[in-house]
Design a protein around this nucleic acid. Structure first.
Length: 515
RNA sequence: CGGGGUGUAGCUCAGCUUGGAUUAGAGCGCUUCGUUCGGGUCGAAGAGGUCGCAAGUUCGAAUCUUGUCACCCCGACCA
């Protein structure tokens, strides 16, 4: 049992922080609400970026970069947008510092006060809209399909590592189209891209659906989302895709000359996913022993742990490990890595140079138990233990992080394909496990009492007939802390009784408490 | 911004009620040496703190008083 990690049952919130700390994914920073993403955590973000970016390119998008600072007046141009974000905007008001009168500190130089303050972007619809207005003149300029990878800042009152930080990393796609249909098609296409990514790479099952009026993005006509369920029964919005209609086009004057030679407003969309995904990944898969990383985004796919006493045993064990490595990563990489790792206690070998996934050999002078815990807490999918007994048997002991499963694999059994197969198998097991949990945690309610009962005792998703309305949602939230997570695409069909009003409705929604 | 709580070593904390033998401590972590090595060995030596900050009371303050700052938890807000 891990000594440094609280159990989920005892204190779920503390468990989450302990897992992050033990795996060295992130740290609190001196800046309130802002985290430091440590190398182990950033490597996971890089894997997410690489995979998502490929999917964006495959669907015809290109990357660009827009400024961090947005003129304050831009925020005011779209009425709902400013209302939604005004409360959490950080402002830049000066361009210079000067020494304080006592000479000990610094303060803003009053003479450097900006004519118009800048807002640190909470999202970039406005400044991108401004640029699109300049770039788009004709229907021939459409569609514009641009994504940017960047940081944004939202001055949250309460923050949690990865799930909600004042500054976070994300991607935001912004597209402009000739017709409403194309914009709608794009909005749904990117929602599918998100869902596929989260399921195929992070092994987290999601529910696709639409947001209600009160939960949608400020300035959108419609917001679609993917919702995931965490192990404590709370929901987490993993990604959103917005159909902005002509709202931003009208606010920023994005007009084009149409095929009929008349001026038209463009139809725009935006969609984003953030470092919150790392929080989702942790909460969906990890256990009381620490982090469990889905194999497809794991920076280290396997850790080899030598076991020996004395120099003689060490030499034979290491020699055998090199043979295993040769099978897994190739003789050439073993040779290259030898030079690269010269002075490293933990030696690192490329398993896949495209995804930058590695295999490590932990040669530190500590007890094998230490090493087991070390890699276990970091969520490495597979550990290979090699000691004198294994060398004698010509095999390695393979342990799986997910379920502690063990098997002995003969030297000839090791190969890159073998490892890929193992990782795929683990991915599938992780997804199935998470899916089984999600299904078991999705319940139906036919009355309001039933809804309250489920939410207060078991949590999870509650599916029920409900006609969304801001007033009734607010009342339900006040009583249950739960909100409509989405109106799922998959509807039972037919007519039912609204759990709150008792009136007939055809709409089914998913209620849950959320992060 | 409302309610509650906490500030002592890198981390978790004891000491504070009743001021003085505390030359400020413990466990973990860290460094060095030895030992051990199949799920967190053991031992020795060592580094590390103006007790959040400021003023006051006192012969004497981590301990009492006042002020101040920071952080945490619960609520309102949220990718």
């Amino acid at each position: 049992m891990a000594k440094n990690i609280k159990t989920r049952k005892d204190d779920y919130a503390q468990w989450y922080l302990d897992v992050i700390k033990a795996a060295q994914l992130a740290d609190h920073s001196p800046v309130k609400g802002c985290m430091v993403i440590r190398p182990e955590g950033y490597a996971i973000w890089e894997a997410i970026q690489r995979d998502l970016d490929r999917r964006f390119k495959e669907t015809g998008h290109v990357n660009a970069y827009f400024p961090l600072l947005i003129p304050q007046s831009f925020l005011a141009k779209e009425a709902q947008h400013v209302e939604g974000f005004a409360m959490e905007c950080a402002l830049v008001t000066h361009s210079r510092l000067q020494k304080t009168p006592d000479g000990k500190g610094v303060q803003p130089d009053p003479s450097s006060k900006l004519e118009e303050p800048y807002v640190i972007r909470p999202t970039s619809e406005t400044i991108i809209g401004h640029m699109y207005a300049e770039w788009i003149q004709s229907y021939r300029d459409l569609p514009v399909l641009i994504n940017q990878w960047c940081n944004v800042m939202r001055w949250e009152m309460r923050t949690r590592l990865f799930l909600r930080t004042a500054e976070f990393l994300w991607q935001e796609g912004h597209t402009a189209h000739e017709t409403a249909d194309e914009a709608q098609e794009e909005t749904l296409r990117m929602l599918d891209v998100y869902a596929d990514f989260v399921q195929e790479s992070l092994a987290i099952p999601v529910v696709k659906g639409a947001k209600t009026e009160s939960e949608k993005f400020p300035g959108a006509d419609t917001t679609y989302c993917i919702e995931a369920l965490m192990q404590d029964g709370k929901a987490l919005q993993a990604g959103t895709s917005h159909n902005l209609g002509q709202n931003f086009a009208k606010a920023f004057d994005i007009k084009y000359l149409g095929r009929d030679n008349t001026q038209q407003f463009a139809w725009t969309t935006s969609w984003g996913m953030s470092t919150r995904l790392i929080g989702a990944m942790i909460m969906a898969h990890s256990d009381d022993d620490g982090l469990v990383v889905p194999p497809r985004v794991a920076p280290v796919v396997a850790a080899i742990i030598p076991v020996y006493k004395g120099d003689a045993e060490r030499a034979t064990v290491m020699e055998f490990i090199n043979k295993i490595l040769g099978k897994l990563v190739g003789e050439q990489e073993v040779a290259f890595a030898g030079a690269r790792n010269k002075n490293a206690e933990i030696k690192s070998y490329f398993f896949d140079k495209v995804t930058n996934q590695r295999i490590v050999v932990d040669g530190r002078d500590t007890r094998p138990g230490d090493k087991q815990y070390h890699w276990e807490q970091r969520g490495v999918p597979i550990r290979i233990e090699v000691g004198p007994r294994d060398v004698a048997a010509g095999a390695g002991l393979v342990k799986r992080r997910l379920d502690r499963g063990k098997e002995t694999v003969a030297l000839d059994g090791f190969s890159a394909d073998w490892l890929r197969g193992k990782l795929d198998e683990l991915h599938k097991l992780m997804f199935d496990k998470a899916l089984a949990f999600q299904q078991a945690s999705t319940r139906e309610a036919t009355t309001y009492d039933e809804l309250k009962q489920i939410l207060s005792t078991e949590g999870g998703f509650v599916r029920c007939y409900f006609e969304p309305s801001p007033e009734n949602e607010a009342k339900i939230k006040a009583e249950t802390k739960a909100t409509v997570r989405c109106i799922p695409f998959e509807q039972a069909g037919g007519e039912g009784t609204d759990v709150y009003t008792g009136r007939p409705t055809r709409t089914q929604v998913l209620f849950a408490q959320s992060y």
